[in-house]
Design a binder for these strands. Structure first.
Lengths: 241, 241
DNA sequence: ACGCGATGCTCTAATATTGAACAGATCGTA
DNA sequence: TACGATCTGTTCAATATTAGAGCATCGCGT
């Protein structure tokens, strides 16, 4: 082997009995997700820094499970079953939250969503868009950005001990969000977009937040936050958390 | 090893140089997706029919990549990053289709979605719900069912050579859909729900369909199909496929 | 208190994986 | 047309990786 794989993601140095083959297979998925276009096996092998036959076997295995597909030219792309797998992520939360999110989205005319903490990132899990969605492309399920940025990120951080806040977090603003019970943002993650979010703490689950994004509104942020808190309470009640 | 892993999914017997470790790791994800609640490592080991220490290492590796998370009690569940990975599935198709789907959903007041062929299943990739969504829970992204069932499934099959149709496909109805250019269903996948779908053929990509689901409508199916065809044409034009 | 069941980790034998080399297929160009 | 370049897909021996047993530890309920 040319070089042993470093800690896959960027993590600390744990005693980590990690499986090399599995790790490489997952990295294939990550590479494909980052790439805009389908990749050839050779390209995958290069980016993975492994021999082609290794990449070939990994791809074949992923294909067997439907996680990647291959077009007529042999190019590799992510498969639809990956989306099916992802539907199982916190699917009780998704199921219980959906009606609440829909209600908020329709009442306020804004995109309403749930984001959860994933290491140092904030990833959108479910989102519901209202009728006249302008910023449709934003806040789609699966989108992620550093948790230090934006209202939902700071709302999530209010659930995390300050000692664990990332270095680039604005401690003053997060502290303010803790006091107020909600967080606001403007022009942070997405240009000229505003957002309001409240924390959503669920028992035995990663820190989460429910929020809305909008261009402008006749409502004060506090009013939006009150509605969101109500939705969060409803979700929490449904899950008994 | 007690027994060599059989063909992972159920596939034909290919020369299959498959990676055992990667296959098992993926099966962990599948098991977690099927399970409603978080699982302990022991439970995973049993369902996987491997030694505990194997499951342990697999889980540890998946955790390193953020694909699974562990709560305080050590229970394993799917991680949010899986949702982020899935966002990359056909994400150019998702991006281009979203405005079209939104337009149709709002015009017709129905849930509008795109489904793609995945082996013998039909999986929903993106869906947009209208304002007064009643059957919100249905047709969420990631949901799947046999391709032989329902309007979107038959619409997809019109793009597939008859020789490849699954045994349980209703050849007469699919043939009818080919002639008409769209497929309809009622009470098939979801009780008392109707659906209309048209095929969406994209160059070098899996067969797909764009459709709507509804309880009842003042429009004839043909009218709905015409609107869907227009949307499909728009999507096809955007992707140059 | 005690046992039960879970996690976390170490160790060696066994084996699954690695990587090179080869055979075909396909495409574009001289 | 023939050539070269670039892929895919397969085989095989050497070895790095993994499999599985065993043990220490922690938390919890009877």
């Amino acid at each position: 082997m040319t070089a042993t794989d470093p800690s896959p993601t960027s993590g600390a140095s744990r005693p980590s009995p990690a499986s090399q083959t599995l790790s490489r297979g997952i990295r294939v998925l990550e590479i494909l997700s980052d790439a805009l276009a389908p990749l050839t096996i050779d390209e995958i092998a290069v980016r993975l820094d492994v021999h082609r036959s290794v990449a070939y076997r990994l791809v074949r295995t992923l294909e067997d499970h439907g996680l990647v597909t291959r077009d007529a030219a042999g190019r590799v792309d992510l498969g639809a079953r990956l989306a099916a797998l992802a539907a199982g992520v916190a699917h009780d939360l998704q199921a219980e939250a959906l009606p609440e999110l829909t209600a908020v989205a329709n009442e306020l005319g804004m995109t309403c969503f749930i984001a959860v903490l994933d290491r140092d990132e904030c990833v959108t899990l479910v989102s519901v868009e209202p009728r006249h969605a302008i910023a449709s492309v934003a806040q789609r399920p699966g989108s992620r950005h550093p948790v230090a940025l934006g209202a939902p990120g700071r709302a999530i951080l209010t659930l995390v001990p300050p000692a664990l806040w990332p270095a680039d977090a604005d401690a003053v603003r997060v502290t303010g969000a803790v006091a107020r019970g909600y967080a606001v943002s403007h022009d942070e993650v997405i240009p000229s977009l505003r957002s309001v979010a409240v924390p959503l703490a669920l028992r035995g689950r990663a820190a989460a937040a429910v929020g809305v994004v909008y261009l402008q509104s006749e409502h004060e942020p506090g009013v939006l936050a009150a509605r969101l808190t109500q939705a969060a309470d409803g979700i929490r009640a449904s899950l008994g958390g």
